[in-house]
Amino acid sequence: MKAAAFDYLRPADLGEALALLATHKDDCKILAGGQSLVPAMNFRLARPAILVDINDLNELDYLRADADHLKIGALTRHAAFHRPVVEGPLGTLLAKVVRYIAHYPIRQRGTFAGSLSHADPASEWCLVAATLRAEMLAKSVRGERVIAAGDFFHGTFTTALEPDEVLAEIRLPAMAPDWRVGFYEFSRRAGDFALGMAVAAARVEEGTIREARLGVGGVADRAIRLGTLEDQLVGKPASSALIDGIAREARGMIEPNGDIHASPEYRRDLIATSVKRALTEALA
């Protein structure tokens, strides 16, 4: 299990990196954390001709919070989220979710942006980005553009990124202190890929849900934001009956995929359970 040969390029800054991507396009892959790419290369399932290693691009290793967004630079490692990176519900949620991403040593290398660019259907960060309506800042020599999460994920391992683009920054909308959050994931072993998971967030005023976010992951070709169910939650008082009803609806509205660990039927159960538990945590 040794990788196929490749050429290795290590640009010193973003400009150089983008120029290399513009030159080599589909022949090259960006190497950031490498925690998904390198295993695939060791199995020879991925065999890029060129690797552009962006690990020297310290300019991309940042977390910045302003009134509207938490901005996550492309080289921000998972481990950066082990402790809340911002005060309030968003930092709490990210610190909870990160514990489910593979294992401690993987989290030291793997990056938030790398997870999103890789677009594994079982990626926790993809679920968070889709559910919280993140914006992706893509850069290339041609310029930069912002892609909404809803337009970013095209399916298993495919995104809206062009071959010459790098996902330079992710912008997660800020969450006011009165939001409450929940996350649930089921996997076979600690750190394994999710067989089903859900993120929920809600702003509740005097017992009534004013705003809601809800998404499930690990069950189809991409993370799914459950917008219609979010709408159903809004304006209603939080109750276990409401949560059960939403969970039941979520179960019915997704056509899950099947694999050796989870049949579609079983995944439907996990959708319902994940939604129920994430919502219950958020609305507790």
Partner: peptide, 17 residues
């Protein structure tokens, strides 16, 4: 496995959804 246990529960009418 979890899915075998759920399968058994479903057959036994113990599946909540």
């Amino acid at each position: 496995t979890p899915q075998r246990i759920r399968e058994a529960l479903r057959r036994a009418g113990g599946a909540s959804y």
